[in-house]
């Protein structure tokens, strides 16, 4: 040991990487819970896609003002649109499911990516809520927002971080 200890704790300590726990660390509840929440988020997405498919016509007419009047071409076009949306949504949800598995197995980059998207989604809702006039209730987007916040809480916890950064090999 050499030199004097500084009289204050440097803020640089906050940026120092934490100690790496041993590879034998058991999976903490926060990691398992976070992965389960991501799966629930996927389930919510599936429900949303099904609801969209069932109410596709009303959505087109109500939200976009598109009226289909027995026009065969327009009908085909709208069906194609629905298929594209369902396929796109399906791919996104499948990727999310893969991330849930990676998070469960303790991948750090998957954990950070999931947290990044949760943060973006939460910020989006917050801007809508505080800046616009969007209402967040159980009937609208409270469930998905709550899932996003819970995912972020679980995966940013110290246990989940330690597990994702544990030594390997």
């Amino acid at each position: 040991m050499s030199g004097k200890r500084p009289a204050y704790e440097s803020p640089g300590d906050l940026a120092r990487p934490p100690d790496r726990p041993p590879a034998s660390m058991r999976r903490p509840a926060a990691t398992a819970f976070g992965a389960v929440l991501v799966v629930l988020r996927v389930v919510a997405g599936v429900v949303w896609l099904i609801a969209l498919a069932v109410q596709w016509r009303q959505v087109l007419e109500g939200d976009f003002g598109v009226v289909l009047e027995g026009d065969v071409d327009a009908q085909t076009l709208s069906d194609t649109g629905l298929v594209v949306i369902l396929a796109g949504g399906g791919v996104v949800l499948a990727v999310e499911l893969v991330f849930a598995v990676l998070v469960y197995r303790g991948s750090n980059w998957a954990r950070i990516t999931v947290m990044l998207f949760a943060t973006i989604s939460i910020t989006w809702s917050a801007v809508d809520y505080f800046g616009g006039d969007a209402e967040i209730t159980l009937r609208t987007t409270l469930v998905t927002l709550a899932l996003d916040i819970l995912v972020l809480l679980a995966l940013s916890s110290r246990n989940a971080r330690a597990y994702a950064r544990r030594g390997r090999g």
Partner: peptide, 19 residues
């Protein structure tokens, strides 16, 4: 000495608290 990852984790930790 320094890890951008640790800073990012710190940000998520605090942001999750506020959320």
């Amino acid at each position: 000495r320094f890890s951008a990852n640790a800073l990012l984790d710190g940000f998520f930790f605090i942001y999750a608290g506020i959320a």
